[in-house]
Amino acid sequence: MKNIMDINLVDLAIGFIAMLIPIALLLYYKVRIIPDVLISLLRMVIQLALVAFYLEWIFEMNQAWINSLWVLVMIIVGIFTSIKRIGLNWKQFVVPFFIAGLTSVIIIDGFFLGFVIKLDYLFDARYFIPITGMILGNSLNHNIVGMTTYFKGLSEKSDLYYFLLTNTGNSKLALQSYIADAIKQGLNPLIATMSVIGLISLPGMMTGQILGGSSPVIAIKYQIMIMLAIFVGCTINLVLSIVFSNAFVFDPYGRLKDGILKKQ
């Protein structure tokens, strides 16, 4: 493995000079988003700087309970972000989304870290945190798309749901097309990404590993494993989110409860 070439802070600051190009273009075309760009840039730097300090400390401690606590925080932040973005009432969805997120993390980490990479210490911060973070980060986006499709479908096509509920006499059959649609819409972007990976995009994790000194072959093997873990994790998380949410979405008569979606 080659030595990692560090970027010193002055050089990193020089990197910000490149931002003058998009800012000049925004000014030229009178696109009034410069304050938003500057604020998000500042937020990105502060958030990542803080994460660097946390992670340095967490990696140094490398305690199972601290690492698990960090993952729990990631799950909870992801849940609240999903609920807000989908426009759901958080009181009804925190529990099902939490159970779905936690279950998918346990299954994926247990399988890929325990059986595929065969870590001696499953909670090793260097593997446990970034791999779980990648799964959760991807699940968040795909869950938002899938769950939005699901609840939008149910609320906009409720006549069809009630038609199917009586005529099939079975809530599983009545919901099947809504669930299938949600899974399809949720996973479609991931399928598209997998099919072109390496051709028109080089994934960030693999690039990071190569820049960090790993051989491209090792980086690619990790990337393949990560894509598998992301796809399996996203599918499990989305399906479980739907299944567990159903217990809170319908009343004992199978009717969609009022107030599931926040009034926009």
Partner: peptide
Amino acid sequence: SARSINQIRNSIAWIPQNINLPV
């Protein structure tokens, strides 16, 4: 009732007025 509703629905064919089902 909530307990009997599945059994009851299983005995019914429902043809709604709104035939504009999204199918």
